[in-house]
Amino acid sequence: MKNNKTSVRCDSVRSLNVSASKKGGLQQAVRNGAPAVLGILFVFVIWEVAVNVTHVSVDVLPSPTRVFRMLLVNRDKFWMHLIPTLQETLIGLGATILVAVFISVLCDFLPTVRKFVYPILVVSQTVPVIVIAPLMVIWFGYGLFPKIIVIVLVTFFSIAVALTDGFDSTEPETVNLLRSMGATKWQQFYYVRLPASLPSFFTGLRIAITWSVTAAIFGEYVGAERGLGIFMQICKNDFRTDLVLGSVIIISAVSLILFGVVAILRRLFIPWAAVAKAGAKK
């Protein structure tokens, strides 16, 4: 009896989701987002209560209300350090996409190049960022450039692999069909391999975007003039745990927003994916 009820509920939720996707994602977004927001609120409440009950020192663990109050009080300072971090993240991600697209397209057209490049790609992933980031500071100083390199190194693999997989998802029968139509190699790429790779590309981008924020912070942490990473470092040394945690909250918020932007871009660029998914469910 109990099982019956749940399964009925699941079905109705699914059909609601489908109708919501037709109306536009807003309703659906609220419905999907609500549990997440409640969950986070719950954690904050527990945290607040724990701090008040145990009277732990503010240097060790400040209450969330204090963290948010300090965020507000120091908003100019946070803003000043947020801008370079955002800049690095977006420029780094842009550079990653350019490099990844260039390399994976090259590998797609020239299998010989692929044999040479692929091992290098894999090896590049085994080098720990913890080592690379300080080296970048030694080689290139405290500016933007070393951060971009760190971000590209961290994120580029996920996009390159996603693109390569996407290109390869084309079936041999499809290639035969296109050849029978007289399509050149370039036309096969443009009409099939490229659009076929888009869903996979966005999956890679979703991973890359969260990593690129982390990589930017890390790049700053080992040496920068401004940015949330170096700001956290300074605050930590001053025992300003509240400001460190405030930075963490900002970083999380930025990551979430960028994640959302990718989801919106995905909808814009591949409107057929939702249709194909609904069709597959039928």
Binding site: E171, E173, T174, N176, L177, Y191, V192, P195, A196, L198, I270, W272, A273, V275, A276
Partner: peptide
């Protein structure tokens, strides 16, 4: 072809 191979996009 045997499969329709219509492009989903």
């Amino acid at each position: 072809p045997q499969k329709d191979l219509l492009f989903p996009w």
